[in-house]
Amino acid sequence: METLEPGLVWTLRGEERLCLDGDFLALLRAVESTGSLARAARATGISYRHAWGRIVRIAERLGVPLVLLKQGRGARLTAAAERLLAVDAQLRRRLASEAAPLLEEMAETLSHWRKPRHKAVSLCASHDLLLAALQARLDSVLPLDIVFQGSSESLESLRRGRCQLAGFHLCPQTLPDGRRMLEPFLRGQSIVIILLARREQGLMVGRGNPHSIRGLADLARSQVRFINRQRGSGTRLLFDRLLAEAGVPPAHIAGYANEEYTHQAVAATVASGGADVGFGIRAAAHLYGLAFIALAWEAYYLACRRRSLEEPAVQKLLQAIRGSELRAAAAAMPGYDVSEAGKVYNLSQLLASTAIPTDPVARL
């Protein structure tokens, strides 16, 4: 299936059409986080003149100033700009939540119209950068139609026959919750589990760790703003379990209710200054130049029906997972261990396992 994401662009109509798009809002967030227009311009990859010119043009159209510059004292957002960012963030969260089923329906519609060059393998999967990289590498020889969604939703899609494989992840901390998650979807079916990789999860913070965050307890500090993953995702399950073990109440975390749907979206929010810290995989932090505080290793799996495993296209995917394609993709991003990729388990082995590794060198 095609993968689609909701978007939101504010357009100011008039003699000159001006757009408050993601780039402009990222610039405002960078001003807010850095306290400097020059640093904000560098962070968003544009010149100082272009940054200031765009801020001035949009402020004139709106009729209110957005950024205040003070010689020797940097820059700060006005109350109007802060309100603009808050409303935009609220609407984006609501749009992402409400549009998810419509996007899936549109993706399914497009998949019927598209004529693939080769027979595609359909996956519904918890978001993962390595899986997306493998998709790009195999596109010309084995198209992977991936819909990224939560682990629970992916397993439900497999149960209903909407995909051939479902991606999810488990670690020692979430194994009890994982058993409860897996059994309703997969119990009573002939299911096999393929190990894709092990990956590292932790806290993503700004370069240089400006808030001196060392662990989960620091998230409860009043000045620290957090960005979370959506409910139903395996990463949210792991984060909530780690919070419980650390004795940190979610209610004490500013931004706990603010959600994004992918690791990249969380990393981008932190990189743009929309939050001070997020929880996700090391590879996403690396992609956005963020500092990373490791908290857990987990295993990422692909579940499929045993009969599907014998299909030629799925066998070809399994060969790619065991071969050089996956290793080449993993070599380009930190935080992955693919040394035992392609191992196949039955469901009872996975549910009974108490030996999911907790360190980078342990093995399943």
Rank of each mutant, 00 (worst) to 15 (best):
139 D>Q: 11
136 A>R: 12
17 R>P: 03
133 A>C: 00
190 S>L: 06
46 I>F: 04
263 H>I: 07
39 R>E: 15
162 R>Q: 15
317 L>K: 03
181 M>D: 07
207 R>V: 09
170 L>I: 10
220 A>M: 07
145 D>R: 11
325 E>H: 14
335 G>A: 10
124 C>V: 14
232 G>Y: 03
88 D>W: 03
137 R>N: 02
222 S>G: 06
260 E>R: 15
222 S>T: 10
237 L>E: 12
220 A>C: 04
251 A>M: 08
332 A>I: 00
187 R>I: 00
299 A>Q: 13
159 R>S: 14
354 T>G: 11
314 V>G: 02
257 A>H: 12
188 G>Q: 05
273 G>A: 04
342 G>Y: 08
255 G>P: 10
269 T>N: 11
149 Q>C: 15
252 H>V: 11
180 R>W: 08
149 Q>V: 15
21 D>C: 00
128 D>P: 15
91 L>K: 06
297 W>A: 00
5 E>P: 00
302 L>F: 05
144 L>F: 10
331 A>P: 04
294 A>P: 13
151 S>I: 05
88 D>C: 07
217 A>R: 15
351 L>I: 15
338 V>E: 12
277 V>F: 02
114 R>N: 08
307 R>V: 13
183 E>I: 13
320 A>K: 03
48 Y>L: 12
131 L>N: 11
49 R>L: 12
1 M>P: 13
134 L>K: 02
250 P>W: 09
68 L>W: 10
228 N>E: 00
184 P>S: 04
133 A>F: 06
177 D>Q: 14
70 K>W: 03
58 I>P: 04
275 A>E: 03
167 G>K: 14
88 D>I: 07
292 F>T: 04
243 L>M: 02
157 S>D: 14
201 Q>K: 06
71 Q>H: 12
61 R>E: 00
363 R>I: 13
283 A>L: 06
174 T>G: 02
273 G>K: 01
75 A>P: 08
322 R>H: 01
173 Q>K: 13
310 E>L: 01
285 A>M: 01
144 L>W: 08
102 L>W: 04
325 E>D: 12
357 P>E: 12
256 Y>K: 07
242 L>G: 02
295 L>E: 07
151 S>C: 04
283 A>P: 12
126 S>A: 15
240 D>Q: 13
256 Y>G: 09
276 D>W: 06
57 R>H: 05
90 Q>F: 13
277 V>G: 00
